[in-house]
């Protein structure tokens, strides 16, 4: 029988207890066990960034962390981002700039952008592009995403 473990963690403000196979990765656990399908699976080797989410305040690839490693962690996925404040403003800016097309990269892109903005990042297009360089988007060409991040930093976007 595959080995399992009991884990308890906080996901989007809720305490969750579950028994998970030890080989189950975090993003599969969130998607398939908790139904939080906002985080996406794009490559399963940490390159595409679609599964990027927040673990204990730091962006993390959900495909490169096991669910069992998240025992005791506090996790925020795209579903748990607040409607107000920086996250709300960023969503508004993404909408205004059409910084998404198919939307598959968007949850990971938001997580990476929020980490940059939250750390006090400047509205420097090169720096923003470098910070987002681990998140693949095939649709937009990235420019509108950079625009949206700049809008939030420079106070043009409101939740």
């Amino acid at each position: 029988m595959p080995e399992t473990r009991d884990i308890t963690l906080t996901v989007n403000g809720e305490t969750v207890t579950a028994t998970v196979p030890v080989r189950l990765n975090l993003v599969d656990f969130l998607r398939n066990s908790l139904g939080l399908t906002g985080s996406h699976v794009g490559c399963e080797h940490g390159v595409c960034g679609a599964c990027t989410l927040d673990v204990d305040g730091a962006t993390t690839r959900g495909c490169l962390m096991l669910a069992v490693q998240a025992d005791g962690c506090t996790i925020t996925t795209v579903e748990g981002l607040p409607a107000h404040g920086m996250a709300g403003a960023l969503r508004a800016a993404f909408t205004e700039r059409n910084a998404l097309q198919c939307g598959f990269c968007t949850p990971g892109m938001l997580a990476s952008a929020l980490e940059y903005i939250g750390a006090g990042g400047a509205a420097d297009r090169t720096a923003i592009r470098e910070h987002l360089s681990g998140n693949y988007c095939r649709c937009t060409g990235y420019q509108s995403i950079v625009d949206a991040v700049c809008d939030v930093i420079e106070g043009r976007a409101r939740a």
């Binding site: 990027t52 730091a58 962006t59 690839r61 490169l64 997580a111 940059y116 681990g134």
Partner: peptide
Amino acid sequence: IAHAAIRNR
């Protein structure tokens, strides 16, 4: 070295 999310872990 890699990207922010990778450097975080």
